[in-house]
């Protein structure tokens, strides 16, 4: 009958009047973020970074600037190159995460925040100092080892560089120093005092199957 569907429509809106709103009042309330969220505050572990600039090469927009120099320190200490500049120009960043995907040593992680608004474009560059000092709450995007450890950057504690990789940090340190020649799988599983997980959401040690 004419008008019947219109009455049904009125009933729908009336029903929704009594519902709880689905919107979120942003600054006070927040949507739950998921661990894979690709956010702005990039997490970078200098200890893990070899300065290979894979991230810079793989960035579709070319916004990562890396300058390295040979380090003066001893090679066995795991310092082949010293990072002088590591600028991420987040003004043009589209947070695709390809830099994280490209990083062979799990040194770069996506961050979990989204509130880096600035008043000037010039401020929209993350310099190396900020990367060094920033909170180490990496997103689990493209990092299956963090996901398997059920790490959630939005709840959890910071992740230490020794626990962030998909392989043992000792193995990694040798790798970084270019001493892989005699590397042995058993080598990487030598227990070490400093390797002992101390945090609540500690990450597993030893080689973890990577995504690639």
């Amino acid at each position: 009958m004419y008008g019947l569907q219109m009455v049904r429509g009125l009933l729908v809106t009336l029903k929704n009047l009594t519902r709880k709103p689905f919107t979120v009042q942003y600054p006070e309330e927040r949507l739950p973020q998921h661990p894979r969220f690709r956010g702005e505050e990039f997490v970078w572990y200098e200890e893990r970074c070899t300065g290979c600039a894979s991230c810079a090469k793989y960035c579709p927009l070319g916004i990562i600037k890396i300058v390295t120099s040979p380090s003066g320190t001893a090679v066995p200490q795991g310092d082949k190159y010293r990072l002088e500049v590591f600028d991420i120009e987040i003004a043009r960043c589209m947070f695709c995460g390809l830099c994280v995907e490209a990083c062979p040593y799990d040194a770069l992680f996506m961050g979990s925040g989204f509130e880096q608004g600035r008043y000037s474009r010039r401020d929209l560059v993350i310099p190396i100092q900020q990367l060094r000092e920033s909170d180490k709450r990496p997103s689990t995007w493209f990092r299956p080892q963090l996901e398997e450890a059920k790490y959630n950057p939005h709840l959890g504690q910071p992740v230490d560089w020794k626990q962030a990789g998909r392989e043992s940090w000792r193995w990694h340190q040798r790798e970084k120093a270019g001493l892989r020649l005699d590397s042995h799988p058993a080598d990487s599983n030598v227990p070490d005092e400093t390797e002992k997980p101390t945090q609540a959401n500690a990450l597993p040690e030893g080689p973890v199957q990577g995504a690639r």
Binding site: Q33, R36, R38, L98, E147
Partner: peptide
């Protein structure tokens, strides 16, 4: 969009798929 964020960390600009599959399994 929430499901997408769970899957690939972004809601609109997903970049979830790659030539040869998808970048990672669903959590």
């Amino acid at each position: 969009l929430d499901l997408f964020e769970m899957l690939c960390g972004a809601r609109i600009t997903v970049s979830y798929m790659r030539p040869g599959g998808v970048f990672a399994d669903a959590p």
